[in-house]
Amino acid sequence: MKSFAEYNPIVITVWFFSVTGVAMFCNYPLLMLMSLCGAVIFFLMRNGLSHGREHLFFFILFLILALANPLVSHNGKTVLFVMNHNPVTLEAALYGVNSAAMIIGVLYWLRSFTQIMTSEKLLYITGALSPKLSLVLSMALRFVPLFSRQSAKINNAQIAMGLYKDDNIIDDIKGRSRVFSILITWALENGIITADSMEARGFGACRRTQLRRFRFSVRDTAFLILTLLLLAVTAAAAGTKSLSFVFYPSITAENPDLLGIAGLITYGLLIFLPVIIETEVSLRWKYLRSEI
């Protein structure tokens, strides 16, 4: 029994890219609305009502993006009003709202994605591509914080020894550039020790293998297949004429045919897969716990 975030990282990545990919490469308003709503619900489900600032930021960004299009683009037949001798049209306004929904939706998805994909999962995925790349990333992930901590330590040491002369900017910059140059020396010096330590433990002795911490279970496989099936139907619907929506010069929408309706339903299912999983898990857990 595992919640969505505990699924195999490859499966999670495929799912995320399916959801965001459809949202990015298609502009059917209903799909955009589903993507945006799904993304917000997914984010709220994971974080509850915290992260108020992020929501505010996304909301303001949404308004800016939605308003920018009609001010810049003057295509479209239905003129709402004229501003500075430029017509502002209904079509451009709606197009703006649509693309804002797309962008904000994708941003919400990516925000959740970075929360779920910890560094360890990212390394697992890069390791599947190339074990060497994964090792380099892992070393970088260790080294960057080490470097910044050492920099802070050196700064404090210099301050406490009274070696920053005065509080003027030029002295500060001079001081910091010296700190930076010794940091490079320090990094190289440490690099030698790390290299020794790697070599002493047989680095380069033969072909590397990689410890995998995530296994592919039956549930992972099922989830992956389901994701790909739903994606296929949605992509078929979005790629053909089944879901067409034209903004310019005037809004024309045909009623979606059977494939189009199927596409909408499958995309909806795709988006709500994690919600379904979480609900199922929590219900099952409640049941199991009642048995204890």
Partner: peptide, 20 residues
């Protein structure tokens, strides 16, 4: 400086990974 990777488990696995 002897530690190569960023996670404890990965550090433990490092030598064995090298040996294939």
């Amino acid at each position: 400086q002897q530690i190569v990777t960023d996670k404890v488990w990965h550090e433990l696995a490092f030598g064995l990974e090298n040996l294939g």
